[in-house]
Amino acid sequence: MIWKIFLFLLLAFVSVAGIAFPIVENPSTWYQFPLIPGLEENAKIIFFHVPTAWLTVVAFFMSTLYSFKYLRKKNLDDDVKSYAAAQLGMIFCILATVTGAVWAKFAWGSYWSWDPRQTSIFALLLIYGAWFALRSSIESEEKRATLSSVYSMIAFVTVPFFIFIMPRIMTGLHPGSADDTNAGPVIDFKMNGNMQLIFFLSLIGFTILYFWMWNIGYRSILLREKLNKQLIRG
């Protein structure tokens, strides 16, 4: 219980601080953020957008990991864990895409511009969209678990290719992108200490939130299956 209160306070603080702390040119007190040329107020998205993108990666990675585990041990609980993680991954993926697109409208002038990271997240949406479509087409639990696990493995090995190809084909617009300094407001990323602190607190808070949600998610699926079984048996 205590950690739930702690998590609540942490996320409340991060939300307030992330939105309300002023951005000034020369920060003098602890609650002021530095002005980053080219980003200005837009910089605040980092406290919310980056955690969602990070959790998309964490959740999909965990889903793949449990798929791998399922293939080795053939324990259906692992498949449920993988599914619960992928569900959350999809939610965070959509959140990251939407928050990113809204931000891009203000920072880059258009919602979508096929920047490498936008393309990668689009690829993730496609992969997991296909993954959920595959799962819903299979009746038998075991078959569903096996085939979707195999599909995650195949999808997983394509990930490095995206990482290598993207920067060659399209130019990076994201703040902090290595390859391009002309297109868009790409800058050396300069956060001061308190900004970094809140950024990392936000990352930690959201990560705990994710693990909590994932735990509830897979346990509720397991309970539902158990109840279904009891109902069938009468």
Partner: peptide, 15 residues
């Protein structure tokens, strides 16, 4: 399902 499942896997190759 076939094109749906294949497309993301083939995407790096096609690009």
């Amino acid at each position: 399902l076939y094109p749906v499942l294949s497309f993301p896997i083939l995407l790096p190759l096609i690009l």
